[in-house]
Simulated assay, not measured.
Amino acid sequence: MGSYFRRQLADYVEYHRDPWNCAMHVFGIVFLFLAAILPLSLWPITVFGIQTSAASIAVIPVLIYWFLLDFALGAGILVAAVALLSAAAVIVGQTTTVGMWSLTAILIVIGVASQIIGHRVFEGRQPALVDNPTHLLLGPMFVMAKLFIALGFRRDLAIIIQGQPQGAAS
């Protein structure tokens, strides 16, 4: 899957060159992920005698996909997903159902708005998923790749995302 992921990432990057658009995506993707799992966190499920939620079960297929695309980035997203699943569980445990649905709606509005603003105002281009719907699942990989690059890891991805090796002169 490595070459497939690199081709998809290179295509995705073409829609995400502006740093402000990228920043908007960090918040938008996190907010939309949280909005997706919040309602599912209300639904308890027992699997093999272990109590969990529908949210935890729902993220497994996409986590597997991300691991298959790139193991290290998938592991980074797993850590973020665990943190967000934990946050969702706390929110659901501390608020009413109406409060949870209100927060979900707010997160969706802010998440979608940040994506639209990032593309229209800063990038001046339509979102990547309009041309290729599979890019919806590449957003978290892109954000995690940018984090890995910022931390000094993944020169191979820095070449794709930044157009030059990490540490190379501009």
Rank of each mutant, 00 (worst) to 15 (best):
F67D: 04
Q126E: 14
I110P: 11
L68C: 07
H135I: 06
I117E: 10
T97W: 00
G124T: 00
L137V: 10
L138M: 07
L34D: 02
V121K: 14
F67H: 11
V92H: 04
I117A: 11
V112K: 08
V109I: 15
P127Q: 02
P44G: 02
S86I: 15
A89W: 13
L84M: 15
S86R: 15
A55K: 02
F33N: 06
I45K: 03
T97V: 06
P140I: 04
G124H: 05
Y65P: 14
G139W: 07
D131T: 05
I57Q: 02
F142Q: 03
L38W: 05
P39V: 12
T95S: 12
L32W: 03
G74M: 04
R125L: 05
L129N: 08
E123K: 01
P127V: 01
L34Y: 10
L78W: 15
T97K: 00
I106A: 09
V109H: 06
A145R: 03
A145Q: 04
I77N: 13
L138F: 07
Q115T: 07
A81I: 10
P61V: 06
P61M: 05
T134P: 15
F71R: 08
I64E: 09
G111I: 11
R125Q: 09
I110W: 10
V30G: 08
Q126I: 09
A54L: 03
A36W: 15
L129Y: 13
V143C: 09
T134Q: 13
I37N: 02
L84P: 13
F71Q: 06
I77G: 09
L136D: 12
A75L: 15
L42R: 09
M141F: 00
L138A: 04
I45E: 05
A88Q: 08
N132G: 01
T95R: 11
I50Q: 08
T95P: 01
I108L: 10
K146G: 13
V98A: 08
V121I: 08
I77H: 13
W43H: 02
G139F: 07
P39M: 12
H135T: 11
L85N: 08
V79A: 12
A150M: 07
V82C: 09
S53H: 04
A81K: 13
H119A: 02
Y65Q: 05
I116C: 08
L38P: 00
V109M: 13
V109E: 07
T46G: 09
I60M: 11
G124S: 06
A105G: 07
M144G: 03
R120Q: 13
G99L: 06
Q94V: 13
G118T: 02
L42P: 03
V112G: 03
V82A: 12
S86A: 15
W101A: 00
G93R: 06
I91T: 00
G76K: 10
A150C: 02
D70I: 01
T52I: 05
A80C: 10
V82K: 06
P140Q: 05
P127Y: 02
A75W: 15
I64M: 09
T97L: 00
I91L: 09
G93D: 04
L85D: 03
F67N: 10
A128L: 04
H119M: 04
A105V: 00
I64A: 12
I106T: 06
A89R: 11
I116K: 14
L32D: 01
Q115H: 14
F48A: 15
I108A: 04
I64C: 08
S56R: 15
M144L: 01
G99S: 05
E123N: 01
F33L: 05
N132Y: 12
